[in-house]
Amino acid sequence: MTRNQFWTLTRRLVSYAVLSAVTFVVCFPLVWALSTSLKPKSEIFAMPPTLIPKTATTENYKALITGRPQYFQSGGQQVTSGTTPAQFFTRWFFNSVIVTLGSTLITITVSTLAAYSLTRFRYWGRTVVPYFSLLGYMVPSIIFVFPLFLVMVQLNLTDSLLSLVLGYVCITLPFCMWLMWAFMRSIPIEIEEAALIDGASRLQVFRQVVLPTALPGIIAAAIFSMIVSWNDYLFGRVFLNSLDNLTLTVGVMLFFEGTHVDWGLLMAASVLMTVPMAILFMALQRHLVAGFGAGAVKG
């Protein structure tokens, strides 16, 4: 082995070791949550702890999905009636989906059109708007929550999903618009002109040429918006209060209430919360890299 090969090998080993350690740290909570969610009650606190459940059970998932009351009091007695968080799980999941899709749809529509206008039309202020839109990100969102809440009170929208949709649009729109602006700027105007000469109308140019070309940017912006809306706790906590209207992040916190925490149920809920975003991410990550890349280089 030459000196060179030795160093190459060493470098590779070291980087693999570091990457493995990081991967472990990142993945362990997820794996542990999955493992716990599949364990029967008796095994959750077993010593020594097991990573792979000895007797796997899907009881927790069934309870969440069917909404069957399955709530243990501190004595270990099963309660089969009354209000329990598990009953509301599907409702909250549905609420989260509605809020996430709603806010993303609005954000994407508005930011795409705004970015197109900012890059293609000439009017006063079009050069400064994208930069100012980023200013909001230098302030923690807790600053916005209460003013926005007061606005919602004025609009009579408190404790509604619509208030949350509008709240999320407020925080995702500026960044998505900046992202789309950077992306639109990188689309050469010539391809639009070529389409105009080829015989397309303005609207056809936008639909058939601009939108498909901007698709990676749109996907990147949509993923960003979905992650923010899906994972938010703060806005949901402040804006909502009736059990029926909660989103997943706020609702799952209720699993901690009372004297007893049903860890199996809580972990199953956490896993189910993670799954949609994980699937979305894996399916679209290729576009995400392209989208953020284009924004970063050209912006």
Binding site: E193, A194, A195, L196, I197, D198, A200, V209, T213, L215
Partner: peptide, 18 residues
């Protein structure tokens, strides 16, 4: 432009990328 019955070749080619 669409009503002039012209065709144009651009310096950057301006092909539709997708």
């Amino acid at each position: 432009p669409r009503d002039r019955n012209i065709a144009m070749v651009f310096q950057s080619y301006a092909l539709y990328p997708q």
